[in-house]
Simulated scan of single mutants.
Amino acid sequence: YNDAGAQIANLAKSTQAHVRASGGAPLEIPDGGYHGDYIREIAERYVAQHPDDAAGNDLDAMQAFAVAALRHEQDLDMQAFGVKFDTYYLESSLYTDGSVNKTVEGLKQSGHTFEEDGALFLRTTDFGDDKDRVMKKSAAKGGDYTYFVPDVAYHVTKWERGYHRAINVQGADHHSTITRVRAGLQALAIGIPKGYPDYVLHQMVTVMKGGEEVKISKRAGSYVTVRDLIDEVGRDAVRYFYLMRKGDSQLVFDVDLARSQSEENPVYYVQMAHARMCGIFRVGEIDAATVTGDGVDLGVLSEPAEQELVKQLLDFPATVKGAADNLEPHRIAAWLLETARAGHTWYHKHHVLGEPEAITRARLVLARATQLGIAAGLRILGLSAPERM
């Protein structure tokens, strides 16, 4: 968890500027600082809870307070989204427990570092980078470690803790981090494989509402939280929209579409297909759990719409495996949409109940298989499978 480094220092200084402004001083946000109203709100809460520092002199206390406040907000977002982290690993602990210094010493001993103009460099070009990278700035520039150094230290600890398969999910602006972190891990020569860790990079999301883009900028202060989206359209829609595109492709989150109850809304369309299958059993007063293929002649499912639906269902295991192997959950979202489309088509074209017994029994099996398949796909993506809509 990012609670150290240059960005956190700017967060603390931005909070300090608002604390001092609340006492009558001019508001002076530092270069690279944060301008949003949420910083002002954090500053107001800090003053309320730290009346002995209304002048804003204790920068360390303000930093700890601001980090904790934003961590709390992010935790609420994750809870609303249905995501639970088992462990938070604080970046600051990598400095306090000596992991960063140990990693830097290991890199020096590896022979892949050099000094130039007072700065310490890592020869990342030895491992495929386009140029060597600064590890530690010169004293004239603050003498701080650059951001990828604690990242290398963190992944060393992760490897040592037994996590030999690691998948980092990050924004596309972290693309250069991949080469640098992997270079650092290889330079240490401690047995970590070249492709460690895996990365899944996501593009920024464009949020549209009422035909206009909702601007998102943390530093400018105008941003949309996950909870905002969930409040607008519900958790299922937010999760599906985020998962329906490959991570590195641009996502336009259309709030109006996500709220609509129409076949243009993919999550509504998929869940409606599941509800329709459930409705068949409800209308027929049949316990769906008792429906199996035992003794049923499935050969009577000869209509083109039935054949297409069967084909979609048979693709499910391979789709799940491909999604897992390639870290591409959007494959399951796409399968759900295609299966829902096939299911709706079959539902509209062919009756299940009231047909000759052999056909009804076979179509009940197909309805049950479709119900189970869609429910399984939704469950993998963390979505609900409503029985009525």
Rank of each mutant, 00 (worst) to 15 (best):
G299R: 13
R219N: 09
F316W: 15
Q261R: 15
K131M: 08
Y240N: 01
L120Y: 08
D297G: 04
A64R: 15
G221Y: 09
G142T: 06
K321L: 13
K209V: 06
N265C: 01
A237H: 02
A362E: 07
D53V: 09
W159S: 13
K141E: 14
Y240F: 03
S92A: 13
K349A: 14
H72Q: 15
A358H: 09
P193T: 08
V156M: 05
G279D: 02
P197Q: 05
V300N: 11
T103F: 03
R361Y: 02
W159E: 15
I190N: 04
I359D: 12
V270Q: 00
Q307T: 15
A220R: 15
V352M: 10
A68N: 15
Q170G: 09
R235Q: 02
F148H: 07
D256G: 04
V296P: 10
G36Q: 11
D294Y: 12
F281W: 00
P356Q: 08
R165M: 09
A273Y: 02
Q63T: 09
C278A: 15
Q312T: 08
L27E: 10
R235T: 04
A4H: 04
A305S: 15
D130M: 12
P329K: 04
A305G: 13
V19M: 02
R123T: 08
G191V: 07
S92F: 07
T157G: 08
V352G: 06
V224C: 08
T345V: 14
K13S: 09
D256C: 04
E213F: 04
N2H: 15
S14Q: 06
G299K: 15
L313Q: 01
Q63V: 07
A289I: 04
L372Q: 14
G23L: 01
E212R: 10
Y242P: 01
F127Q: 01
G5E: 03
A6N: 12
Y145Q: 08
I280M: 11
F316V: 14
A183D: 08
Y269P: 01
P150G: 00
Y46G: 10
P30Y: 09
F85R: 04
V181H: 07
I39E: 10
V267I: 00
G211K: 03
K108I: 12
G143I: 12
Y34I: 03
A367N: 05
V47P: 07
E160I: 07
S249I: 05
F316P: 02
R276D: 11
D236T: 06
Y95C: 04
L27R: 08
M272R: 11
L243Y: 09
M277W: 03
L336G: 01
E73L: 11
R361Q: 09
I39H: 03
G23A: 06
A166N: 03
V296Q: 12
L185H: 08
R123E: 11
T360A: 10
T146W: 06
N57D: 12
G128P: 02
Q170N: 12
H18P: 04
P197F: 03
A6I: 14
I167C: 07
Y147G: 02
Y88R: 12
L27D: 04
Y268C: 00
G343D: 06
